[in-house]
């Protein structure tokens, strides 16, 4: 097998694995019971899915301009996905959109009054 053939095979494996992980994220989004669990699906398997997809593309395309752009996409995905997930998750928990019957432990509930009037909340007008 030529080098090009090997590279093509690696790229194909990366892309298919990435696509399957993204599919799993989609299925999880539909099947998981409450918002916090769904945030896991929205934020996570798809991160690795995207990284694998970008790796596959980088191997196939292999021009410097495109690869540098893909590196940036990966970096910003890694930096922003957790922040977005945290903001949605935090709001969801405060608004009580959590299925507490599915939690085997909740160590946040007893400490919640600490956050009741946290300074990050905007003051009432």
């Amino acid at each position: 097998m030529t080098l090009q053939g090997v590279l093509d095979a690696v790229a194909a494996v990366c892309m298919i694995a990435g696509a399957l992980l993204s599919l799993a994220a989609g299925v999880a989004l539909l099947r998981f019971p409450d918002l916090l669990s769904r945030m896991h699906a929205a934020a996570k398997p798809q991160v690795l899915g995207l990284l694998l997809m970008l790796t596959g593309c980088a191997i196939r395309i292999a021009t410097v301009v495109d690869i540098t752009t893909m590196v940036l996409i990966a970096v910003f995905q890694l930096a922003t996905a957790p922040v977005a997930a945290h903001m949605v998750g935090r709001a969801a928990y405060r608004d009580g959109h959590t299925r507490t019957d599915l939690l085997i432990a909740d160590e946040l509930a007893p400490d919640m009054e600490k956050f009741a009037d946290a300074p990050s909340d905007p003051p009432p007008p």
């Binding site: 916090l36 996570k44 957790p82 998750g89």
Partner: peptide
Amino acid sequence: AEAVSLVPGSLIAEADHQTGTLYIHMLGV
């Protein structure tokens, strides 16, 4: 918090700045 959030199955639900406590929602415990 970033690293914990990026690993699937764990998500930061709340963070307490004063005590340095992270409240982490874990999936499939």
